[in-house]
Design a protein around this nucleic acid. Structure first.
Lengths: 111, 111
DNA sequence: TTGACAGGCAAGCATATACTTGCCTAATAA
DNA sequence: TTATTAGGCAAGTATATGCTTGCCTGTCAA
């Protein structure tokens, strides 16, 4: 069953902001960071960063976990894979389609 | 040489709107349509559609060509491939990386 | 040449988005 | 306890975005 369109929209909207893409990059480089650590790399107030992280969390791209008074942030790459599978793959040139399908099949059995 | 960040931003912003994604779908199903033909499938005025197409053209996702008083629209999938190559591939789970790289290499020699 | 048809231009508007500032609460360390 | 540290909440603001209406300009067919 394909994801509802609203999920897709949240996902693309989340990716539309350069600051949010930067946050994903930061988490990709080093996962499980606190809000404060992430703020050190963003040229905006803590609240601004929080709001971006909220958007990423709504899009299911970031998961969080409390540890005492800290909040840890983790990257979830699955929705990105969904973008590729459901959206980018069909725009590929036909001669690449077969290989893309193979890749997708391998992922399903393997992951 | 990687695309400047502004290009990346135009691209993600272009994809952020469901109407624009719909237009890409329409062109994917049947390329080279006129503005009027595209409008028949969009629940908004012609000007609204024009503005969306302008955004897609600025992101290099759509190319146009005049034919008399008509304007033909063509889908350009290359930027979507760039999203995958430069942005999605690095977030993939490691065991998929090798296959992704293979796919990319095949594309370079083949296409 | 005249009318209809395809599209372009520009202003206007309402909502969404990306921030900010100010204050509040909870966990920890002294 | 008390001060400090990590983060949350809410309101305010300026700009961006999505879309409209009204009018103008080319192209083609009669």
């Amino acid at each position: 069953m394909p994801a509802p369109r609203r999920d897709t929209d949240l996902l693309f909207k989340a990716l539309a902001d350069p600051g949010r893409r930067r946050l994903l990059d930061l988490l990709h480089a080093h996962d499980g960071r606190t809000l404060g650590e992430l703020c050190e790399h963003m040229a905006m107030t803590r609240q601004g960063v929080t709001q971006h992280l909220d958007v990423l969390e709504a899009a299911n791209l970031v998961a969080t976990q409390r540890r005492g008074r800290e909040k840890l942030h983790f990257l979830n790459p699955v929705p990105l894979q969904e973008i590729y599978d459901r959206w980018l793959a069909k725009f590929e040139r036909p001669r690449l389609r077969a290989l893309a399908n193979l890749k997708r099949r391998l992922e399903k059995t393997d992951g």
